[in-house]
Simulated scan of single mutants.
Amino acid sequence: MNSIYEQLKIDRTVPIPLYYQIKTFMIKHIEDNSLKDGELVPPEEELCAYLNVSRPTVRQAFLELVHEGYLNRIKSKGTFVTRPKIAGDFIQKIQTYNQEMQYYGLKPKTKLLSISEIDVFAEVMEKLKLTEKDKVICLERLRYADDKPIVYVKTFIPVKLCKGLIDEDLEQNSLYDTLKTKYNIEIAHINRQIHATVADPYLSDLLGIMENAPLLYITTVAYNQNDIPFEYSLASYRADMYKMNVDLYKDKYYK
Rank of each mutant, 00 (worst) to 15 (best):
S3A: 15
I4T: 10
Y5T: 05
E6V: 03
L8A: 02
K9R: 10
I10G: 06
D11K: 10
T13C: 01
Y19K: 02
Y19L: 10
Y19I: 06
I22T: 12
I30R: 01
N33Q: 14
S34M: 02
G38L: 06
V41F: 11
P42N: 09
E45G: 07
E46V: 14
E46T: 14
A49V: 13
P56D: 03
Q60P: 00
H67G: 04
L71M: 10
N72V: 11
K77A: 12
K77F: 08
F80L: 03
F80A: 06
R83K: 15
I91S: 13
I94G: 07
E100T: 10
M101Y: 06
P108I: 02
P108Q: 00
T110E: 08
T110F: 07
K111T: 11
L112S: 05
I115K: 15
I118R: 07
D119G: 12
D119W: 05
E123C: 02
V124C: 04
V124R: 06
K127N: 00
L128Y: 01
K129D: 12
C138Y: 06
E140R: 11
Y144D: 12
A145I: 03
Y152Q: 11
V153E: 15
V153Q: 15
I157W: 08
I157D: 06
K160A: 07
K160V: 05
K160G: 03
G164H: 04
L165W: 08
I166G: 13
N173K: 14
D177M: 11
Y183W: 04
N184Q: 13
N184G: 04
N184E: 14
I187Q: 12
H189I: 01
R192A: 08
P201M: 05
Y202W: 05
L203A: 04
S204M: 02
S204K: 02
L207Q: 11
G208W: 08
L215F: 03
L216F: 06
Y217Q: 00
Y223D: 01
I228Q: 14
R238D: 12
Y242V: 13
K243Q: 15
K243W: 03
D247G: 04
L248W: 02
Y253I: 00
Y254E: 15
K255S: 10
K255Y: 05
